[in-house]
């Protein structure tokens, strides 16, 4: 008897505007027999959907589901553990402010210093390469 290898992965899914109203997660359950646990869900002002899930099921189902998701145009990234800011390097320009899908960077209207709210951060890592002086780092 072979035992199917099971996996549990935390992933960040980004849905382009055209997919926001499509029943995609439903198919993960129905067609791929995956269990999911929603860690965070939001629709950004640019009408992109953002979903952080823990997906679990057989390794094969998981891989097939990933293929299905990327095939329909959902961007999928593993949820990394921690994103932090190198305070020495940050110049407080603000380039990150509109890149972050959950508004974790906020410009102080008075001082124009950019505050990083780590508790809001979902570790999607979009800011890492968008930061011109590469002050944002991932701690794995």
């Amino acid at each position: 008897m072979t035992v199917a290898k099971t996996v549990a992965r935390k992933v960040v899914l980004r849905f382009p505007h055209r997919l926001v109203d499509k029943p995609i997660i439903y198919r993960l359950v129905k067609d791929y027999d995956l269990q999911f646990n929603i860690l965070k869900a939001s629709v950004t002002p640019e009408e992109e959907g953002l979903l952080i899930l823990e997906l679990s099921g057989s390794k094969k189902s998981y891989d097939d589901a990933v293929r299905y998701l990327t095939g329909v145009g959902v961007e999928l990234q593993p949820l990394v553990k921690d994103v932090f800011r190198n305070e020495e390097r940050c110049t407080h320009c603000g380039a990150c402010v509109t890149i972050c899908p959950v508004d974790a960077f906020v410009v102080n209207p008075k001082t124009r210093v950019v505050d990083f709210h780590e508790t809001k951060c979902i570790a999607c890592a979009l800011c890492i390469n968008a930061c011109p002086v590469r002050a944002m780092e991932v701690r794995l």
Binding site: P45, T91, H92, C93, G94, A95, C96, V97, T98, I99, V107, P109, T111, R112, V113, P132
Partner: peptide
């Protein structure tokens, strides 16, 4: 621009700076 968003083609568009105002100060 510094208010955080501007209106272009009837859409409210969030703004970001590449130049650091706090460091200019």
């Amino acid at each position: 621009l510094k208010s955080g968003s501007i209106k272009i083609k009837r859409k409210q568009v969030p703004t970001a700076s590449l130049s650091s105002y706090s460091r200019a100060v």
